[in-house]
């Protein structure tokens, strides 16, 4: 097992902290960016799982001999990015529609008088 580089670990932690902070804000735009940063943090975590790329060749046919970088996390990240792309587009339109319907971009305002029993 190759250790994860320290700076990568710090960066992942920083991204998760920023993402969590932004998701917990009330403004829609900040929440959106929070989710983006969170998904990127998760992707980076996956990438770090293939270990340090030093002295390793890319996992491409004919890229040279020697130990290759573990390609599986990269495949997983590609999948996760594609999924994140679709979900982000959905989230943007959803927040946009919330803004158009409710005339606010502030979640605290939106859920201020939470009447959950029935629609008025």
């Amino acid at each position: 097992m190759i250790a994860m580089p320290l700076e990568t670990a710090l960066l992942i932690g920083l991204l998760f902290a920023c993402g969590t902070y932004l998701v917990l804000q009330t403004s829609f735009v900040r929440m959106l960016f929070g989710f983006l940063i969170l998904s990127n943090a998760a992707n980076l975590l996956l990438l770090a799982m293939s270990g340090s790329p030093e002295d390793r060749v890319p996992p491409i046919a004919g890229a040279g001999s020697g130990p290759m970088v573990d390609p599986l996390p990269q495949a997983l990240i590609l999948t996760a990015i594609v999924i994140g792309f679709g979900v982000t587009a959905y989230l943007v339109i959803l927040l946009y529609r919330l803004f158009l319907d409710q005339k606010t971009t502030n979640a605290a305002e939106l859920y201020a008088e939470q009447d959950t029993t029935e629609r008025t």
Partner: peptide, 14 residues
């Protein structure tokens, strides 16, 4: 599809 919808939505979903 996504980006065309985004472009059109600048004038509101309606």
């Amino acid at each position: 599809k996504m980006l065309f919808v985004f472009m059109q939505s600048t004038r509101g979903l309606r």
